[in-house]
């Protein structure tokens, strides 16, 4: 594309007088994207997450060995080498392959938790904030009860009750991670619920349901996305923690936390068995954190609105 064409496309996107719904929406997204990509670290975070997605999608192609079947006879606890980049574990499995397959489980946990917890938090928070009174008091006290326990302990209790396994770990983490989202959504709702633009919609005759769903929720979503992204690291760590304690993913599933747990017995002599999945968790958590910080700059409704 010629420089001229790029320039005219940019002008079209940044136009002060968009001519269609589509152009207005794209223009807004473009401005957010420009603000986001101006932040180098956030960009690095985005690359890490994209990398994670690619690895998870093409795990079959990328992994040189099977993640679950090892060579017990010839390759137990081998140090990193050209044949096994990250070495092998006590059952002779290639750790590099296990980490690549493990990315799928990491994504599985993170995405499911986000899909379950964020909408619950959003709903509880906006309804409590907008309704006020008794509804608010009851919903917020329930939230407080959940917040009163450390996340991992509560998740532990839930998994202990539901039985170990990765699905139950996801459920337990989701149940313990919605309360902060409810708090955020409620705080946002309280700041906008007395604004003139919400009063104007009330004066249109809109039902409370419609006001919450169509006018208040969209305002809370960006801060929620930011918070969820920043929490991803915590979710991965909690999942890993549950895996480490033997309550999350069960062997031989190549989940990173479980891998660390099984590697801890040789951590002094064969450091790579626990070190490699630990490093993977570190990188991915860092990626989500950087991405979240960048999103905060790009999406924060308080910046660049006026």
């Amino acid at each position: 594309m010629s420089a001229e064409a790029i320039q005219s496309r940019r002008d079209w996107l940044l136009s002060d007088r968009p001519a269609s719904r589509m152009q207005a929406r794209l223009g807004r997204a473009y401005v957010a994207w420009r603000r986001f990509s101006a932040n180098r670290l956030a960009f690095v975070g985005l690359l890490i997450i994209i990398g994670l997605l690619v690895v998870a999608a093409f795990a079959d192609v990328l992994a040189p060995y099977s993640p679950t079947i090892g060579d017990l006879k010839g390759s137990r606890l081998l140090a990193p080498s050209a044949a096994h980049w990250f070495g092998t574990d006590d059952l002779g499995r290639d750790i590099y392959s296990r980490i690549i397959y493990g990315s799928r489980w990491t994504l599985y946990v993170v995405i499911l938790v986000a899909i379950i917890a964020a909408p619950i938090g959003l709903l509880v928070g906006t309804v409590a904030g907008y309704a006020g009174g008794w509804t608010d008091a009851i919903l917020m006290r329930i939230t407080d009860i959940f917040l009163a326990f450390p996340k991992l302990i509560l998740a532990l209790a839930f998994v202990a009750a539901l039985g170990p396994g990765i699905e139950n770990a996801v459920l337990a983490i989701a149940i313990t991670s919605w309360p902060p989202y409810a708090r955020i959504a409620r705080a946002e709702t309280l700041t906008v619920r007395n604004s003139d633009y919400i009063k104007a919609v009330q004066l249109m005759g809109a039902s409370p349901f419609r006001i919450v769903l169509r006018h208040i929720m969209p305002l809370c979503i960006s801060s929620l996305i930011i918070r969820v992204t920043l929490d991803m690291a915590g979710i991965i760590l909690t999942a890993a923690g549950l895996g480490f304690l033997g309550l999350g993913a069960q062997p031989p599933l190549p989940e990173w936390g479980t891998m660390i747990a099984s590697g801890r017995r040789f951590v002094l002599d064969q450091w790579w068995v626990a070190g490699a999945p630990g490093f993977a968790i570190l990188i991915v958590s860092l990626g989500f954190n950087l991405l979240g910080d960048g999103l905060r700059d790009a999406l924060d409704p308080r910046s660049g609105e006026q």
């Binding site: 719904r21 003139d196 633009y197 009063k199 104007a200 305002l219």
Partner: peptide
């Protein structure tokens, strides 16, 4: 219907 005082506060910031 009503028209509010502050034109900066009476329009939803995320709506066209």
């Amino acid at each position: 219907q009503m028209v509010f005082q502050d034109p900066y506060g009476s329009l939803h910031p995320r709506q066209t």
